[in-house]
């Protein structure tokens, strides 16, 4: 492997100074699961790595309705956070199937989005959850919506001297559920063929149902057997990974659903629209036509899952398979 120096600043300021000093010759390293692999594969060759591990508090998770996470929060910490599982389920869905336990133990959310791989599993959920990110350099500090963060495959607005210091997820509206589906070829150690995240806020959290088995049946049946009880979508965000050069929102699809009465047919149309908005391409990991087809299937399923999570909040655990 290429040789490099390894620096371990103890404060954020120190890190910012070092970054400024070394400029393009340095790289930040968080868990290193991308950086070290990229160096080994000769994709990058920094002279200096600046580790964020010794800086206190960058791995904090704060919750007071909204959620604030330091960039050094590991996927494993997210996986285990009951607060996140309950309130920001899409994110839990994503880290649950990210890499392996070993990877999740060290890999961080900050690293995941900073690498900005089109396949980054936390990107779509963060888009769906309406996250904002805080970036800091010696000179400036700014907070931007995550939509503006990604600029291309492997590219972000991060400048050479920037550090991502915080990820903020706003407090969801009442009666909100979210879900992420990583469409993959095996159960672990896989990158998504497609990632689909949906967040839905409903106008109510309980429904009366003609069917006695209501609680047991799948949500599609529930939707059919609603007894005059209409459910409206108050807010929706649909985000797709590996469907375009960057993680993307399906804006047109969202528009179609926002403020509307939710029905099976409408969700189908929404999913179709999302598929039209996407620009998937062929790669060895999946073909464009299949990705597009899966958007149609999975956007609907994730919308259903989100509704289910509002109506049946006790079932927060995500099933391994949907059918």
């Amino acid at each position: 492997m290429k040789k490099f120096e390894y620096l371990k600043p103890h404060t954020l300021d120190e890190a910012l100074i070092l970054l400024d000093q070394y400029g393009g010759r340095a790289r930040l390293i968080a868990g290193g699961t991308d950086v070290i692999v990229m160096i080994k594969q000769k994709e990058i060759s920094p002279d200096v790595l600046i580790s964020l591990q010794e800086i206190p508090d960058l791995d904090r998770i704060n919750y007071n309705g909204s959620l604030s996470m330091g960039p050094m929060v590991t996927h494993r910490a997210i996986e285990k956070s009951e607060i996140i599982r309950k309130n920001f389920s899409a994110l839990t869905d994503a880290v649950d199937v990210l890499g392996s336990v070993q990877i999740r133990n060290v890999a961080t959310i900050g690293g995941n989005i900073s690498t900005a791989a089109p396949s980054a599993d936390t990107a779509a959920p963060l888009l769906a959850l309406g996250a904002r990110v805080k970036l800091k350099s010696m000179k400036t500090e700014r907070t931007i919506p995550i939509e503006q963060f990604f600029t291309g495959p492997g590219e972000t607005v991060l400048q050479k001297d920037d550090i991502l210091t915080e990820i903020i997820i706003p407090k969801p509206l009442p009666n909100t559920g979210s879900a992420y589906w990583k469409h993959q070829r095996r159960g672990a150690l896989d990158l998504p063929i497609l990632g689909v995240a949906v967040l839905l806020s409903l106008d109510k959290a309980t429904v009366t149902c003609s069917d006695l088995l209501c609680t047991a049946s799948p949500i599609s049946t529930v939707l059919h057997s609603l007894e005059g009880d209409e459910v409206f979508c108050k807010e929706v965000r649909i985000a797709l990974g590996v469907a375009a050069p960057t993680p993307m929102r399906a804006i047109d699809a969202e528009k179609l659903l926002r403020s509307k009465k939710i029905s099976d047919e409408l969700l189908e149309e929404v999913a179709e629209t999302a598929a039209k908005e996407a620009q998937p391409r062929d790669s060895i990991r999946g073909e464009a036509w299949y990705r597009r087809d899966m958007i149609k299937v999975l956007v609907k399923r994730m919308a259903m899952k989100s509704i289910e999570r509002v109506l049946k909040p006790e079932e927060t655990v995500f099933p391994v398979r949907l059918w």
Binding site: R185, R186, G187, A188, L189, D190, L191, I284, R285
Partner: peptide
């Protein structure tokens, strides 16, 4: 094109 365990899909314990 897939000379690595991420892209060559042998089964894991979950599969």
């Amino acid at each position: 094109m897939n000379p690595n365990f991420l892209d060559y899909k042998m089964l894991t314990a979950k599969d």
